[in-house]
């Protein structure tokens, strides 16, 4: 019984860590711009696909992974420069549709540049599971969890310890005020797209050895990441992390104990339940509407 629960726990945390990274990407861009970037999943796809193709072409894995992150950051910055920046001042919903268009566009390009097949990547340190108290854990799970932790810690340090981080926080809190005190909010926005893309691509690289990848993996991840960000409270990095992990755990425990056909339904019912009690998510800021 304990082994079983531990198995569900590891499974949920691994998948949840990826949701958390996607949700973090959502949060960073949202904070800087109020945009819910539905192309976030495509960064994950880019991370996985570029790594796979570079690796297949003979590039060593660490270098392939770096290339993938660079490519994703490039795409993220271009997305900001060419699609979001020209529409500055448009309503949030217009910007969201732009990101939906961007996501369709990126998928369309990916199916041409890469292909429409599934691809795999060898696990970073072997595929033999490690037995812990009767549960079989893939070494790659530790990579995913460790990598996610690294990102969380890095972001925390960035926000808490650097001036630039403070500038980002200030922009998130009040864009106009931040601008008035001399924060280059446009730069902050570009930075957010770059960092979000990097985080997304990083998640894609870590998870591909477990889940495989293809040109269209992004859609579902974006959906789950968005739900996770909402569960945690939009705009809260801590909420994104907690929301992502929670969503992963909900799915895995629901699949393992209640019903595998309705595991996503269970997860969404819990999200709805949480939102009814806490309409701003678990860690969301209470916003006061000004008239």
């Amino acid at each position: 019984m304990l082994a079983e629960l531990l198995q569900f726990l590891v499974s949920g945390l691994t998948v949840g860590a990826v949701y958390a990274l996607v949700a973090l990407g959502f949060t960073l861009i949202y904070n800087a711009s109020d945009v819910v970037n539905f192309a976030q999943g495509e960064f994950v796809m880019l991370g996985g696909m570029v790594t796979v193709f570079a690796f297949a072409a003979g590039v060593p894995l660490p270098l392939a992974a770096s290339l993938a992150i660079l490519a994703a950051v490039g795409v993220g910055l271009l997305l900001h420069r060419l699609a979001i920046e020209p529409a500055r001042g448009a309503s949030a919903v217009t910007l969201i549709i732009i990101t939906i268009g961007a996501s369709i566009f990126l998928r369309g390009i990916a199916q041409i540049v890469f292909d429409k097949r599934f691809h795999q990547l060898p696990a970073f340190s072997g595929a033999d599971p490690i037995l812990v108290a009767g549960a079989a854990i893939l070494p790659q799970s530790f990579w995913v969890l460790g990598g996610a932790l690294l990102v969380f810690a890095g972001l925390w340090l960035f926000f808490e310890r650097t001036l630039l981080g403070k500038a980002v926080l200030a922009t998130a809190a009040n864009r106009l005020a931040a601008k008035l005190v001399g924060v280059d909010t446009s730069f902050v926005l570009a930075l957010s797209f770059g960092v979000s893309a990097a985080i997304g691509a990083f998640a894609g690289i870590l998870i591909t050895p477990i889940t495989l990848t293809s040109f269209d993996v992004g859609t579902l991840l974006a959906l789950k990441g968005f739900a996770a960000a909402m569960l945690g409270g939009m705009g809260s990095p801590l909420g994104a992390v907690v929301g992502g992990l929670l969503l992963g755990l909900l799915e895995s425990f629901a699949a393992g104990t209640i019903s595998s056909a309705y595991k996503d339904a269970v997860a969404f019912l819990v999200i709805l339940g949480v939102l009814f009690v806490m309409p701003q998510g678990l860690f969301g800021r209470r916003s006061v509407e000004r008239v």
Partner: peptide, 12 residues
């Protein structure tokens, strides 16, 4: 069809 981990189901 897009799930990334089926170990809970297999455990069951």
């Amino acid at each position: 069809p897009r799930d990334s981990d089926m170990t809970p189901q297999l455990t069951r």
